[in-house]
């Protein structure tokens, strides 16, 4: 018995179509769940319970399973990130390459603490675990694309992102 009734869909028809596609893309329905939640995270910058409930119904999965996945993986957040989600690796090699200094730079440049969103909603930053770019440390990630080594100049240029 679901104690929260679903009141309408939290998505646009176009978004619903994307999510539906993920239910048939792989040989088994549930295999599309992580990709579907990635889409949700991309659109909403976080996973709302209503969104997860809708996805659960679409995939014919219990809500607690979908919420478990939504809260387990670091790509998914339950609080909104900025439009540009910035990651700074603090793994061993990147730490050796000076990640703490770049973390300070990010905080100063963007004006927000880790995991906080700027007032215009454009940016949030966070320290992340190894991003697989140890030879270009301290590695910088923007919306899941590696940007090479974080430098004061590169960080300053982030503000140009729309």
């Amino acid at each position: 018995m679901n104690s929260t009734p679903l009141v309408g869909s939290p998505f646009t028809p176009a978004q619903e179509a994307v999510l539906k596609k993920w239910t048939t893309f792989y040989p088994h329905k549930e295999m599309g769940l992580v990709e579907a939640l990635r889409s949700v995270q991309e659109w909403d910058r976080h996973i709302r319970p209503e969104a997860a409930a809708y996805v659960a119904e679409l995939f014919d999965l219990p809500f607690n399973r979908v919420w478990g996945v939504a809260t387990f993986f670091p790509s998914f957040t339950t609080k909104p990130t900025g439009k540009h989600r910035i990651g700074l690796c603090h793994g061993l090699s990147c730490w050796l390459a000076g990640s703490p200094l770049m973390a300070k730079r990010l905080q100063e440049t963007l004006g927000v603490a880790e995991r906080e969103v700027t007032k215009d909603g454009r940016f949030s930053w966070e320290e992340m675990e190894c991003l697989g770019a140890c030879e270009q440390g301290p590695a910088l990630l923007v919306n899941d694309r590696l940007q090479g080594a974080a430098t004061p100049e590169k960080i300053a240029k982030l503000k140009d992102l729309e």
Binding site: V34, F73, S75
Partner: peptide
């Protein structure tokens, strides 16, 4: 198939769990 982070999902059986939407 794209993952959603988590180092542990690189372990073979954990990878399979992730691929099964868990």
């Amino acid at each position: 198939m794209r993952g959603a982070g988590a180092y542990i999902s690189g372990l073979d059986t954990a990878l399979l769990e992730t691929m099964e939407g868990k």
